[in-house]
């Protein structure tokens, strides 16, 4: 760790004379370089934030103003009225969609994380025949496009009479091959065999070792798997689209597109779509920004450590 800190100290503080001279020589071009970097960063930030800014502005407008005023500035703001309309339209169906989205993403990703942790831990810490073959099979699952699975899945699920139920979306969401991959990589390096051995000496059962020791050590990876799967389910569109026909079961994504597709005939739905998009996007964006460090920590864990 000390070797990591040292170069910084040399750069900022009392460095040897030749390095100091070289630093001074570079100062001119370095300033230009820095202005260029910040300039480019700003241009990209405008690109990524512009649609969000437009959404905030648009959600304050009436339907007429939405089409009749300049999109990047406010005009007769009436945000509260608009949001009330979103929440009360069609007996408050929007809230129902929001609850459904939380249910699908929350339950689906919690179960997916638990079973991925168990499977990843088993693949990392036990030796058995066919282990690598099994792991490769699961890895191949990562490469299968989810949308290619959704159609046959619909046919199977409708055969057993589960189409158009919560289960039709929940059950497939509980499988995360990528989660197993991450958990295995993390457990292999982070959970020491010696701890497991000494716990076994003390007479702890394998299940108890997993639930009390392994899960605790693996928790950073588990948070990453959970968030990953949560966003994946929350953003998923194809699966609920093929599985669900009852609007009461829709997640927000499906609900909003259904409003959008009717907006031709009912223009007030344009404004509802905009307001509904704002309401659904804000909490998740806040969560994304606040929880950023977990993505940073976990994602390349496998490829870095393996």
């Amino acid at each position: 760790m000390t070797t990591l800190v040292e170069p910084h100290a040399t750069r900022s503080g009392g460095s040897p004379a030749p390095a100091e001279a070289a630093r001074r020589r570079r100062l001119g071009p370095e300033l230009h370089w820095r202005i260029l970097v910040v300039g480019l960063l700003t241009v990209f930030a405008v690109y990524f934030l512009l649609p969000v800014y437009w959404l905030v502005v648009a959600s304050t407008k009436s339907t007429d103003q939405l089409f009749g005023s300049f999109g990047l500035w406010f005009s007769e703001p009436r945000l509260i009225d608009n949001l009330r309309n979103v929440l009360t339209h069609d007996d408050g169906i929007y809230l129902r969609w929001a609850v459904n989205s939380v249910l699908y993403a929350g339950v689906g990703s919690a179960v997916a994380t638990l079973i991925s942790a168990m499977a990843g831990y088993a693949l990392a810490k036990y030796r058995f025949r066919g282990r690598e073959a099994l792991f490769n099979l699961i890895l191949a699952g990562v490469l299968i496009p989810g949308t290619a699975l959704a159609l046959p899945l619909y046919l199977m699920i409708s055969k057993v009479g589960m189409a158009n139920t919560y289960w039709a979306v929940l059950l497939p969401s509980m499988v995360s091959p990528f989660g197993v991959y991450l958990c295995r990589m993390y457990a292999a390096t982070a959970v020491p065999d010696s701890i497991l051995e000494s716990a076994r000496m003390d007479g702890a059962s394998e299940r108890r070792i997993f639930t009390t020791l392994a899960v605790r050590i693996m928790s950073p990876a588990l948070v990453t798997v959970f968030l990953f799967q949560f966003v994946g389910i929350w953003n998923n569109y194809f699966l609920p689209l093929v599985m669900l026909s009852d609007p009461a079961l829709y997640p927000i994504t499906l609900g909003l597109t259904s409003w959008q597709s009717f907006a031709d005939r009912q223009p007030e739905l344009y404004q509802l779509t905009v307001g509904g998009a704002l309401l659904s996007v804000l909490p998740l964006m806040v969560a994304i920004v606040v929880l950023q460090r977990f993505w940073r920590g976990g994602l390349t864990e496998g490829s870095v450590k393996a």
Binding site: P51, V52, T257, A277, V281, I288
Partner: peptide, 22 residues
């Protein structure tokens, strides 16, 4: 800047499409 660039990841594809569609 990092947050600004990462933010759209939290927007579902269909909602991003509705947004850009406008």
């Amino acid at each position: 800047f990092r947050s600004a660039y990462f933010l759209p990841y939290g927007v579902p594809g269909v909602i991003a499409s509705i947004l850009w569609g406008f």
